[in-house]
C-alpha cells in the first residue's frame, strides 16, 4: 500500500502503472479459458495472462505489470476505449483481484464501465490531453490522488481534474448500498407495470417442448 493514513476507501493516494495500449479488450484482461470459474474471486493472478506470462508460465519481463515498481500500484492508466469487447464481469474481478482500485482512460466501453462501477473499481475518464500528461509524468514513485466524493483526480504535478461519475453510482459507492437494493425497492412499480402489460409470452409454455 502506498497511501497515507488519511486515506479512505474512496479518497486515496496511489502509485500508478501505465499501459499505453488502446482498445484493451476484455479478452486481454482475462482470457476466456479462465472463465470456467463459478466464483468472483481468484482471477487476479490471471489478469492480462497472455501479456503477463511467457509460454512457459514465467513472468514476461517486458510487460509493465511485471516491473518491480508496478508492484503495489493501485491505479491502472491505459489507452482509449478500455474494456471493449466481451461483457465478462470477470475482467473487473480480475483487475480488482490484481489490486487495482481505479482505471484511468480517455474512454471506456459501456458494459465495462457499468461492471466496474458496480464492483467499486472506479473508471476515471479524463481528456486525451490529461491522459497523455499522466502517462508522460509517470515515474516509479509518482502518485495520483483519487477522490470519489469530489470526483477529482490529482496528477503528480498537482493539477486536479474532475471526472464524470453517474450520481446514482456515486451515491451507492459512498453509502455502501447497491443497485440490487434499489431495484428490489421498485418492486411495486414493476408489479404495476406487469399488470398493465399482460402478456401470454412464456418461456415455460408447452409450445416450446
Amino acid at each position: 500500500m502506498t497511501g497515507t493514513t488519511a486515506d479512505t476507501q474512496w479518497k486515496f493516494n496511489a502509485r500508478y502503472v501505465v499501459l499505453p495500449t488502446e482498445n484493451v479488450d476484455t479478452d486481454q484482461i482475462i482470457p476466456a479459458r479462465f472463465l470456467t470459474t463459478t466464483d468472483r474471486t481468484g482471477l487476479g493472478p490471471s489478469a492480462f495472462n497472455d501479456w503477463r506470462y511467457l509460454a512457459d508460465g514465467s513472468p514476461n519481463p517486458d510487460f509493465v505489470l511485471n516491473r518491480p515498481e508496478s508492484q503495489g500500484a493501485e491505479v491502472l492508466v491505459a489507452g482509449h476505449n478500455f474494456g471493449c469487447g466481451s461483457s465478462r464481469e470477470h475482467a473487473v474481478w480480475a483487475l480488482a483481484g490484481a489490486g487495482f482500485r481505479a482505471v484511468v482512460s480517455s474512454t471506456f466501453a459501456d458494459i465495462f464501465r457499468g461492471n466496474a462501477l458496480g464492483n467499486g473499481l472506479l473508471p476515471i475518464q479524463v481528456s486525451p490531453e490529461v491522459l497523455a500528461k499522466l502517462m508522460s509524468l509517470h515515474t516509479p514513485t509518482s502518485t495520483v490522488k483519487v477522490d470519489l466524493e469530489a470526483s477529482t483526480l490529482t496528477l503528480p504535478d498537482g493539477e486536479t481534474v474532475s471526472f464524470p461519475v453517474p450520481p446514482f453510482s456515486k451515491y451507492c459507492l459512498l453509502n455502501g448500498t447497491d443497485e440490487m437494493g434499489f431495484l428490489l425497492g421498485t418492486s411495486d412499480d414493476a408489479a404495476k407495470y406487469e399488470a398493465a402489460h399482460r402478456s401470454s409470452f412464456s418461456t415455460l409454455a408447452a409450445g416450446a417442448a
Binding site: 457499468g114 421498485t186 414493476a190
Partner: peptide, 21 residues
C-alpha cells in the same frame, strides 16, 4: 449485453437500471 451483477438484478427484479443512450 450485461454483466453478471446485472444478470442477478434481472433475475431478482426483472428490471435493470439504465441511463438513456
Amino acid at each position: 449485453g450485461i454483466g453478471t451483477s446485472q444478470v442477478a438484478h434481472v433475475l431478482a427484479s426483472q428490471c435493470l437500471l439504465q441511463t438513456r443512450p
